[in-house]
Amino acid sequence: MPPGLTDGVLLLLSFFVPFLLLVFGFPPYLRLLTKKGRVSNDAHKNPPTKVVEPAGPMLFLGALVGEFVVAVGFHSWVPVAIMFGTGVAFIVGLYDDLYVLGGKTKPLLLVLAGLAFVSLVIFKANLYQSVLTFPILGDTSPHFTIYTILAIAAFPVVTNAFNMMDAFNGEISWFTLLTSLALLLGLVLRELYTTGFSLARVASALPLVAAAAAFLIFNRYPSRAFDGDSGSLTFGAMFAAIAITGGVEIAAMIAIVPAILNSFYTLSSVRGFVERRSMPTRPTYIGKDGLLYASTEKEAPNTLIRLILLAGPLSERDLVKDIIYLTILTCIFSAAISVLTWVF
């Protein structure tokens, strides 16, 4: 059903409150971080430049305020559950930004985000439905236990996948913006073409879109801010939680295929969870011409970036463009899945 006037205003507020908060909040926040010396090397510049990090706390604040608007405006528990799981992921990310967690410790701690999220089913049984809806074929039968286990597992998987897409100027912000728009499309179609689907579940995706769009202004090439692990894990956890509560898991999974492939390539080539700083061989390197090259060493990990660069060296800006094209393709697949699932 299309939303009424009040709902329309609430939807606008759910987007613009976090968006404007971040657009106007970032400059003073970045100045504060600079004053405190919180800058890191942009390793893909020759010579390296200094960029402010982490922007994650500001992103989390913006998302939190946005979800608060949704929770109050629509009297819904959904944003509470989303931010409960996201909050745990944010804390893990912030700890990693400040003290650096081990390659295995981080995914293990991120299971806690999944547990925090599903624990709210105790208070609100209809937080998520334990079925998956497939295009044309329809719903699977409900399987609460297996679905809940998969929902918990989704948090470390998706958050790590987002974290691994956070290597170049603008990469994470473009990736999150495009995939969250694909997610939003699925939710909107579900709202328009099915009955009994709460508008709050659609609105809860808007703060994520707003945060990604606002961050893009500061993160695009040449970056003025890096999100840090606190930011990328916040984005990933929100994405997972919104997909689960909105029942658009299939479309969400398809949208993030570049990130899934990237994690899969990395994990399978380094054979396990290894912190990127302790990888024995780098997948890429910067040439004297300032371009990025794929490492041709046999033991170099097969990241998505290396696969792109194997076709030829690229500037950082062109490399991010290629990642955007790969993401647009999967977002088109995701949109097709959403149309086939909810419209037909």
Partner: peptide
């Protein structure tokens, strides 16, 4: 030059579904 990666993505997409 991205065509092979598009094909890998499309295969991953179909297999996941």
């Amino acid at each position: 030059k991205l065509a092979p990666l598009f094909i890998i993505e499309a295969t991953a997409f179909l297999l996941i579904i």
